[in-house]
């Protein structure tokens, strides 16, 4: 069979594998709805008392809440599959619209975080591995250890104290200057300016992770046979490091970057609420305060889908980068 057909089959198979995961997440959502006191209609309607009795009756009919549990589950799955995530009375908007409105800022924050964390992490890991056990290596290791142990929200608040309040270099919150109405490049610059501190905060942990991973990966690769061969051919150490080891050492770091998307979403709840960044995390934080559980469930469901999709994309991209990967 040709390579292209083989790859197509691999992609199709991975797509099929994603469906049961998404179904399982829907079932999990349904089970979570059964946990609180009162029936699911109370939870779905959001904060007690804010929904009209007509809407409550409508909800009970729609989800068949008088029916046995398995029929309720079927009705629930049917609604979610049609992307009907319910209505948020707090915000007077369908949950799906609310979430889609907030998706872009979160994606922007996540992409800039991954770029910064992978970019700087790879560089630091490379430096550490090149000067093994030197002061540089030790300093980078200490930095990684401390970053691992620092709570995200605290880093964010301390960055605000130093760089926003005391130095005045960056804005304390939001995504754009309110009332400025910038357009074109001015707007892009304004958003970028607001993006700096949240990105640094969210990337710190992953930066430490990728630094350690890159260092370990470089050390592992430098013990391989092909490196000995290259050295025997008389290549310079610099050429061996950059031309041969670096390329191979990058692969595990890239894989890891895909795996981390799920935890990145969790981190963005904290970072967005610290910096007032108008994304999904901020929406979740507000839903928490309004006790709008249905909105929270919607955010949770779509974030989980996002993780599944990103993992899928990473797997497919990876199959192009490393042709040795199993494509059965």
């Amino acid at each position: 069979m040709s390579m292209a057909a083989n790859r197509l089959r691999y992609v199709a198979r991975r797509l099929l594998q994603a469906i049961p995961i998404i179904l399982a997440i829907i079932v999990l959502n349904f089970l979570l709805l059964q946990l609180p006191e009162g029936d699911a209609a109370d939870v779905l309607a959001g904060e007690a008392g804010s929904a009209t009795p007509e809407y409550m009756a409508q909800l009970r009919a729609k989800f068949g809440l008088d029916e046995p549990l398995h029929i309720q589950l079927l009705a629930y799955v049917k609604n979610i599959v049609q992307l009907d995530l319910g209505y948020s009375f707090r915000n007077n908007m369908p949950v799906l619209d609310l979430i889609l409105d907030r998706l872009m800022p979160t994606l922007l924050l996540m992409v800039s975080t991954i770029l910064l964390a992978v970019g700087v992490g790879v560089l630091l890991g490379l430096f550490a591995a090149m000067g093994l056990n030197s002061w540089r290596d030790n300093l980078i290791s200490i930095f990684a250890l401390v970053s691992y142990a620092t709570p995200l929200f605290w880093v964010g608040l301390m960055l605000i104290v130093v760089f926003s309040i005391n130095l005045g270099w960056f804005p304390t919150s939001g995504m754009e200057t309110i009332g400025a109405f910038y357009e074109g490049w001015d707007r892009v610059l304004d958003i970028a300016h607001h993006l700096v501190l949240p990105t640094i905060t969210l990337s710190l942990f992953y930066l430490a992770l990728y630094t350690r991973l890159m260092r370990a990966s470089m050390l592992e690769q430098s013990g391989m046979d092909y490196v000995t061969t290259a050295r025997a051919k008389g290549l310079t150490e610099r050429r061996i490091t950059f031309k041969h080891i670096l390329r191979n050492a990058l692969l595990p770091v890239l894989t890891m970057a895909g795996v981390q998307v799920g935890s990145l979403i969790g981190g963005s709840v904290i970072v967005e609420s610290v910096f007032g960044w108008p994304g999904l995390g901020m929406l979740a934080f507000k839903a928490l305060f309004a006790r709008d559980l249905n909105l929270l469930l919607g955010i949770f469901f779509l974030s989980a889908c996002l993780v599944v999709i990103v993992n899928l994309i990473v797997d497919i991209v990876y199959s192009f980068l490393d042709p040795r990967i199993e494509m059965r």
């Binding site: 995961i21 969790g266 709840v269 979740a284 929270l296 599944v308």
Partner: peptide, 19 residues
């Protein structure tokens, strides 16, 4: 694998909020 796919911190938030 399912539990590793789910965004864990968000899941924890949801669990505590519900309970």
């Amino acid at each position: 694998e399912l539990f590793q796919t789910i965004p864990s911190f968000l899941f924890a938030i949801l669990l505590v909020a519900i309970m």
